[in-house]
Design a protein around this nucleic acid. Structure first.
Length: 290
DNA sequence: ATAGCGCCCTGGTGGC
DNA sequence: TGCCACCAGGGCGCTA
């Protein structure tokens, strides 16, 4: 569920709370989220390092780690002190990142804790354990397949209809599942694909390559606007998403998860279909097929 | 090359 | 009322 706005909300929270802090300890409660990275490697690469910056690429959180502190270095003999490591996180469907006092009660489904030098703790929770948290070298980071082929950031300068058109090329798939492809546009998931199509008044089953340049321009702008509004609101309102302090977001979708309810714009009952294996909600009144 | 599907996982729900 | 089958869903990797 966490998409670009939710991941960006978490990024901002981490930037505010943990940049400059040093990681003094690691607790792995559920190694499944390490996705095959050996626990001693994870531990050694993280321990003693300073959190330099927190970036986001699509739905990935990328935490840059600085040099290890000499005193702690000796406790981590396998740590490669010459390499700058990146803590690479993906929340997938149910992952949550929280920052709290180390003495605060532990929420359910805790997977990894990173203890910090000011007495706080970063906790990674994931009910489904689909999420990922690994510490990677620059080479390993480049090899992350999802990052390597990722499409443009829709909130950055240069994002427009022509860029979207270039990514879509001659694709014959429906526009909705096309928007979910991270190689087309970074960070859009099921919620914001539906919301963007609704805002752009584009039917989700339109063949992607059949959209005109004008329609793609409107759609590109709709994606940007919807994502920017959701970032501003601190992410979508859902029990499944909270920011680093545990607060839910303020963005309320117009169509997502509202199948069978009235369209906010025209009152038509919203239609729910399955498209590319994903639940899809749209308004037949506002988003007609041409 | 590209599209579609199964897989990972577990809480909530609808049906019997 | 209780139990169980089934559904949701991001992204990777395999298949056709």
């Amino acid at each position: 569920m966490p998409e670009l706005p939710e991941v960006e909300t978490v990024r901002r929270g981490l930037e505010r709370c943990v940049v400059g802090r040093r990681i003094t300890g690691v607790e792995v409660a559920n190694p499944k989220v390490l996705k095959g990275q050996a626990e001693p490697i994870f531990r050694a690469r993280v321990t003693g390092r300073r959190i330099e910056q927190v970036a986001r690429r699509g739905k990935y959180l990328l935490v840059t780690l600085g040099a290890a502190e000499a005193a702690i270095e000796t406790l981590s003999p396998t740590a490669d002190t010459d390499v700058s490591f990146t803590l690479c996180l993906h929340l997938k469907m149910r992952g949550q990142v929280r920052v709290s006092d180390a003495a605060a009660p532990i929420e359910p489904y805790l997977c990894v804790s990173l203890l910090l030098d000011d007495g706080s703790v970063i906790r990674f929770h994931d009910m489904w354990t689909w999420g990922e948290i690994r510490v990677l070298t620059p080479e390993e980071l480049k090899a992350v397949s999802g990052l390597a082929g990722m499409g443009p950031e829709p909130l950055e300068a240069g994002w427009n209809g022509a860029m979207l058109a270039g990514r879509i090329g001659s694709r014959r798939t429906a526009i909705k599942p096309t928007l979910l492809d991270q190689a087309i546009v970074a960070g859009v998931g099921n919620i914001y694909a539906d919301e963007s199509l609704f805002r752009a008044k584009v039917h989700p089953q339109r063949v992607a390559s059949s959209l005109s340049a004008d329609e793609l321009e409107v759609l590109a702008r709709a994606i940007r606007t919807v994502l920017a509004e959701a970032v501003e609101a601190g992410g979508t309102t859902s029990e499944e998403f909270v920011d680093v302090s545990g607060s839910i977001g303020g963005f309320r979708p117009h169509v997502y998860d509202r199948g069978g309810k009235a369209c906010h714009h025209c009152g038509t009952t919203l239609t729910r279909i399955r498209l590319g294996g994903r639940g899809t909600v749209f308004c037949e009144g506002c988003q007609p097929l041409p």
